[in-house]
């Protein structure tokens, strides 16, 4: 389908959030799940299914908001997030182990 292109409204500003991990800080967008963005930043995260059923990529969420476009099959404990399918919605702080 061709769209009659109106003069483009100023593009919605890309939402960028900070992810704090120990002393590191990574910038992420809302376009992709957290896992791929952490990997691109060179951070090793455990994973297996990458679609929300295995919970291997469960990470502590110390504060901040994430959402899941599709409810994952795995149990997400309170205070944790599933990196493979979580979309970051605010600045957040995460941690791997105590």
């Amino acid at each position: 389908m061709t769209s009659t292109s109106k003069p483009k409204a100023p593009e919605k500003k890309e939402q960028v959030h900070r992810v704090l991990l120990g002393k590191k800080q990574i910038l992420v967008t809302e376009d992709e799940p957290l896992l791929v963005q952490l990997e691109r930043a060179g951070i090793h995260v455990e994973y297996q299914c990458r679609e929300g059923y295995c919970s291997s990529c469960s990470i502590k969420l110390l504060w901040g908001n994430v959402i899941y476009p599709f409810e994952p099959l795995a149990w997400v404990q309170s205070g944790y997030l599933l990196a493979c399918c979580a979309i970051v919605k605010s600045d957040i702080e995460i941690a791997f182990f105590d």
Partner: peptide, 24 residues
């Protein structure tokens, strides 16, 4: 994952290559 405190000192995966095999 089931809400317990961890009990060993190893905090890093000594065989990170396993993920590439486990990925579905």
């Amino acid at each position: 994952a089931v809400g317990f405190e961890t009990c060993f000192t190893t905090k890093h995966n000594p065989i990170p290559w396993i993920n590439a095999w486990l990925v579905s």
